[in-house]
Amino acid sequence: MIRRRSTPWIHRWSRVLIAAIAAAGALETAFLTVVKLTGNVSAVCPTSGCNQVLNSPYAQVFGIPLTLLGFLAYTAMAVMAAAPLAFNPANQKELRSKLENLTWPLLFAGGIAMVIFSGYLMYLLIFVIKEFCFYCLASALFSLALFVLALIGREWEDIGQIVFTGIIVGMVTLIGTLGIYANANSPVATDSAVNSSGSGQAGPPVTTTSGEAEIALARHLTQVGAKEYGAYWCPHCHDQKQLFGKEAFALADYVECDPEGRNARAQMCIDAKIQGYPTWEINGKFYQGVQSLEKLADLSGYNGPRNFKNTIATPTVP
């Protein structure tokens, strides 16, 4: 009597697990896309680093939020994993088998592409942006899990073909990723001249007023050559403006980095290799995140009055 070989549990449950993990990733990226488009990133970020990352130049591709692209990728993986499960194996076995054979290579290719792209984003997170982002880490773990499950979730008949496919997809993904982010900090630099006359997009107006100390500090920062690099759409850049107040901030040297912003000076941001907004340049050193006025005073050697009147939450001081 020949005993039938049992199917490993991972082969039985791999599609369910892939669909579940991809669905979780889709929910996370959908949520982040909504808060990104509504400008509420700071309200949902558990750490200041998360806010820095989601507002950095690396958080969008060709003007599209990276989270939206992630949502589409996770959704595609979930659909491909779950589609064959909709067919009853008892009376639709052949159709289900054909769909499984069709979608497994796509799941494998998608898993490779996502894990390589996520790996590069983690490299940027650790070595370039140098901040911690819980959502980014979770997404990277989701992508890694999808790749592993797509690899071991079935018994592959032609290992050589799988290895070849993996190499090709991996190389294409890596080259494409490097190409996309090659100019992450130079978003059409020539466009900056278009908006130098005062046209272009402006962020929300500064609603706070300035005191004598804020005005004196702003003048001092400009005199010592300090600059703030930001973008009109960046919520923390607006927080920094609110700390100074309307009158004082008008005296500060603010550099608009987005070519579509008003009075944009994108080339200056490119030359300074700005990685996130806002970033202060003081005495040749760079400081990312919202800085308290006390901190700016200390960093710039300001000796004037310090009875600053404006406060906004807890500023980010790296």
Rank of each mutant, 00 (worst) to 15 (best):
residue 92 Q to V: 14
residue 166 G to Y: 15
residue 163 V to L: 11
residue 176 G to F: 02
residue 179 G to L: 04
residue 91 N to W: 15
residue 157 E to S: 11
residue 172 V to Q: 03
residue 116 I to P: 03
residue 98 K to T: 03
residue 188 V to K: 07
residue 133 C to S: 06
residue 190 T to A: 12
residue 158 D to E: 04
residue 164 F to W: 14
residue 98 K to H: 10
residue 153 G to H: 07
residue 89 P to F: 13
residue 95 L to H: 10
residue 159 I to Q: 07
residue 177 T to L: 02
residue 120 Y to H: 07
residue 116 I to L: 15
residue 146 L to N: 03
residue 107 L to P: 09
residue 137 L to R: 00
residue 189 A to K: 11
residue 170 G to A: 11
residue 119 G to C: 01
residue 140 A to V: 02
residue 90 A to G: 01
residue 116 I to V: 14
residue 103 T to F: 15
residue 115 V to G: 03
residue 122 M to V: 14
residue 194 V to L: 09
residue 168 I to M: 15
residue 90 A to F: 04
residue 110 G to V: 08
residue 149 L to M: 10
residue 170 G to Y: 13
residue 199 S to P: 02
residue 85 L to A: 15
residue 164 F to T: 10
residue 186 S to Y: 07
residue 175 I to N: 00
residue 96 R to W: 15
residue 164 F to R: 15
residue 180 I to P: 09
residue 94 E to S: 12
residue 169 V to A: 08
residue 183 N to G: 12
residue 174 L to Q: 08
residue 152 I to M: 08
residue 164 F to K: 15
residue 151 L to N: 02
residue 110 G to K: 03
residue 115 V to R: 03
residue 148 V to G: 09
residue 161 Q to N: 05
residue 105 P to Y: 12
residue 175 I to H: 00
residue 83 A to T: 08
residue 136 C to M: 09
